[in-house]
Design a binder for these strands. Sequence first.
DNA 1: TTGTATGCGTTATCAT
DNA 2: ATGATAACGCATACAA
Lengths: 350, 350
Amino acid sequence: MAGIHEVARHAGVSITTVSHVFSGKRPVAPETRVKVLQAAEALEYRPSRTARGLATGRAMTFGLHFPFAGDSFVLNPYFPALLQGLSAAAAESGYGFLLIPSSQDGDAPLDELLRARRLDGVIVADPESSDPVIPTLVGSNVPVVTTGRFVPDPNLPWVDNDHGGAIRDLFAHLDEQGYGRPALLSTRGGYSYIADTEASYTEEAERRGMPVTIRRPPDLSEEQGYRHAIRLLDRREPPDVIIACVDRQAIGVLRAADELGVRVPEDLGVAGEGDTVLAVHSRPPLTSIRVHPGELGAAAVESLLRLLEGERADNRMIPADMVARRSTRRDARTTPGRAARSRRPSADRG
Amino acid sequence: MAGIHEVARHAGVSITTVSHVFSGKRPVAPETRVKVLQAAEALEYRPSRTARGLATGRAMTFGLHFPFAGDSFVLNPYFPALLQGLSAAAAESGYGFLLIPSSQDGDAPLDELLRARRLDGVIVADPESSDPVIPTLVGSNVPVVTTGRFVPDPNLPWVDNDHGGAIRDLFAHLDEQGYGRPALLSTRGGYSYIADTEASYTEEAERRGMPVTIRRPPDLSEEQGYRHAIRLLDRREPPDVIIACVDRQAIGVLRAADELGVRVPEDLGVAGEGDTVLAVHSRPPLTSIRVHPGELGAAAVESLLRLLEGERADNRMIPADMVARRSTRRDARTTPGRAARSRRPSADRG
DNA sequence: TTGTATGCGTTATCAT
DNA sequence: ATGATAACGCATACAA
């Protein structure tokens, strides 16, 4: 592997200049810059992360905390995708990472990592309100960014999926399709995405003068979706749409409708969240909200890097897309009614 | 953070000696050794991994490849646990890691990581026979260890769960409970654990003069378990036990039995694999095979480290335990019939 | 069995 | 806008 010295020699400049071309920490004359870049390209130069770490006193490692405890990770493709996105973004900026075990296994591993300064920062994925890892982290002064907001402390730096916006798009679509009595299936637990979805649902329904019906099963399983759908459809004035917080739940709703002889989408619209394979392959295909875990991961890393530089993090919302499929399409249009909102992330400093 | 110099001064030795106490790369007199250790303890010394990496030319990073592509990761708690185990073991030996995206996303990220020498070694979790990542890896001369064997190349270093042993224990138990017609539900695809389970099942059944019945649904879903169980139980001579390769599949079998009015465990024994929450909470509780993904991860890291030292890896089998629960217990014993085999890993050099 | 001295590839400090 | 040089914390060849 070529080092900074060879690049410097090749470009006819000092190693200092080469260093600054790659770190961007001080201005370099445009011509010098291209000379260096060309030399680096020719020599296939890559800055060494260990050397950089040694010089800067950084471990070049992030901690990642996932909600392993429940079955949420296990049964939602969102998390592997997020993990993948985080890893890719970390790799790109020269970092590696380590997983922080959920604290039910004891805090020992985390404490040790913290004391040994093995972690430059930590990303916590979709923290539950009661997660004890966050206080530990904050107490030790490690930079922390969460994906999804930490409800008990809104001041923690975060990046998030714009569920609220997607729900608004969904309501516009449902309205257009002539639905008027939407019910929401969410769950318990203090996840911000649940709170956002409920808030946005309530606001949209009220704004349109529709009844507000929220059911909160203990978990997001298909089974619970099935059970609650059965009950909802058995009421005197049943909903004409059931929105689930997760595709898996929505699949349960479809099964319930099928068993009761309720036609989808004619008698009942069904929408999920996540836009997983489940949505694509269900019968009928499921209207769902597509989130972008990869982008979210990249945003989280970016935010964390900013924190490491001593700058203030800017919280970002990653747009989510409503994907209308047959399960809410009473008309026979073939063009998917994708949301036309800008995909440009909105900024929200704080 | 205290450095090697301070420890050396504190212990009255040279930094060389301190270094060797921690690396174990050359003998140190016992008394010297304890002096150093005490000093290190007092100063809360931790060797710096970046410094070590810089000096040795290592990236101090492992690559991890998981079968994200299918839904296997998504729907099996085994993988998060394995990931956690791998991370913990890596952390302990001073390493961090990076995820290697499945190659359907293009090989670009992996190639770049390889060229930049960002990875000291790679662990591939349960590779399918057709996984193109392995050839890429082997071609680039990175040390590789797989969890579960890579069927096309048995010479790749591996660590594995001893499914075969657990199946033998299961048969002993089933025999004891008077079952005589066990069927196996596995799946397609070239996973070594499927091959092992099928081989061990066939061997045990034949040895006991029992009929051999294997069904291979396209995937390991509950739905497939349900469907195939319905068909199996509808035959003229239905099995009196159905063994599934995954708890989730077994849950489908239970549902089928319930619908058909087949009593479990009286008319039909049901066994799963994984010993997940599904097994514990199903009705009746499910006999299952408990594997130890944490230990497996630790073994994989250990093996990879050995490879990095230039030694030859020794492939290891991690024992798996058969946990007998109500779903195969015709008697009313309350003591769990846990396998009494030694938990000591067996070695198999090669 | 132990110590001395050099090097690993960067960043940062202080000059120019 | 650019350079010379000293850390950074450890491993190791070589010496004793």
